[in-house]
């Protein structure tokens, strides 16, 4: 293409008045080896435009949104908690509880038997308390010796 036309196109180009076709012409001209010396410095510009168009989006696109995943997970976790809650509620509901505790503590049918057992338990308790009291008696000895030294 003759130089005059290229110069004219360039002028139009910088005014923003070229069409796409004319711009392609310019790009083609500047991609050749025979660029006029005084236009040489425009070469990188058009070269850059062509080079940039080659760049591509390489990573594989994942269309699963993070949001959706979390919503699904939350729903799953919530239903799990709900299920566990229901199961525990059924197992430990007030209807079952008294029977279970009675069995565990051991209840007596006749009052005599109950009295006997209570008696035994209280006797055991007082026996243990007395053992404790005996060991506390030694403390009185300290009190005595203290009184010997520090006379009032």
């Amino acid at each position: 293409m003759e130089l005059a036309k290229i110069e004219q196109l360039l002028e139009k180009y910088f005014e923003g008045e070229t069409t796409i076709a004319e711009e392609i012409q310019l790009k083609q001209y500047f991609s050749t080896e025979q660029v006029a010396a005084h236009l040489e410095h425009y070469k990188p510009l058009f070269g850059y435009f062509s080079a940039e168009k080659e760049e591509q989006f390489t990573p594989t696109l994942s269309l699963k949104t993070k949001k959706q995943i979390t919503v699904a997970r939350i729903a799953f976790a919530a239903s799990l908690v709900f299920l566990v809650g229901i199961i525990t509620f059924i197992n430990y509901s007030p209807n079952n509880q008294p029977q279970q505790t009675n069995a565990e503590l051991g209840s007596f049918e006749s009052p005599e038997e109950a009295f006997e057992e209570t008696h035994k338990a209280l006797a055991l308790l007082s026996e243990k308390v007395n053992i404790g009291m005996e060991s506390v008696k030694y403390i009185n000895e300290y009190e005595n010796s203290k009184n010997l030294i520090f006379k009032k």
């Binding site: 168009k53 760049e55 989006f57 990573p59 696109l61 994942s62 269309l63 949104t65």
Partner: peptide
Amino acid sequence: FKDKVFRLAKRLLVSNEEAQDATQDILV
């Protein structure tokens, strides 16, 4: 046009990684 989206994002955000993230987000 996904490459065009990427290139436009890169033009503005400059960094390759950011442009990739942006493209990913936009396409999603």
